[in-house]
Nucleic acid binder design. Structure first.
Lengths: 120, 120
DNA sequence: CCGGATCCTTGTCGATACTG
DNA sequence: CAGTATCGACAAGGATCCGG
């Protein structure tokens, strides 16, 4: 726990609200996207994504997602060097959310974002 | 435009990333949720939701969602007093995303959030 | 080199008071 | 009732430094 000091506060008992309490930021779901598209991925591979997350944010998000058991180290006992992260079952279950988002953006955001491509 | 000074910057051409550029915060999708559940809703009705958004954030989100044509005034020509917002077609198309989120949270977040209920 | 941690600047959030 | 103004707290971003 470096920055996220056990931050698990829920605004309400609503499931949608709870999902947003956890994933309602601009980066977490993007890391999940990378893992779904490319499979297991190391720290530096995440940094190579076109959106350019900064190192401190990446470290804190990986820690949070690990706490929530959405991702884990491929080899839990090995040192972190070249030890990739991969999705747990809970993390992989986020795929329908990302698919719905991609589908929606493709259909309703192209007026505002001409360069957008279909399905990364 | 008070706080959102025409902020339409896209991090990449990826649809998922683009959706998160617009909706990747803890409040926007919650307002959409209220509109899906309750139908047209006024400023003060949004404030009554259990998550307690503050007035400046609410105003800035309503403005942003209006710019993106996800919501609009029920009566565009009337003064704002008691003039509710409702979903456009693009806004209503977000429903599958919210359903996927609710479903996922119900299945994978109950270990961390015991009080969560199923489907708001 | 890789995976971070630290420092510092900038931006956004959130509470409350206030206004048309 | 529907916002706006203000201000403090905190999170994001960027650059750099460090241990293995």
């Amino acid at each position: 726990m470096t920055q996220n000091n056990g931050n698990l506060e829920w605004r309400s008992p609503c499931p949608v609200s709870s999902a947003l309490d956890v994933l309602g930021d601009k980066w977490s779901l993007l890391l999940i996207r990378d893992l779904i598209i490319h499979g297991p991925r190391t720290y530096s591979q995440f940094l190579e994504a076109p959106e350019h997350i900064s190192t401190n944010i990446l470290a804190s998000r990986l820690e949070l997602l690990t706490c929530l058991k959405l991702i884990e180290r491929v080899n839990p006992d090995a040192p972190s060097r070249n030890n990739a992260y991969h999705l747990t079952e809970s993390g992989a279950a986020l795929r329908p959310i990302l698919e719905a988002m991609g589908k929606w953006a493709g259909a309703h955001l192209s007026d505002f974002h001409a360069d957008m491509v279909r399905m990364p």
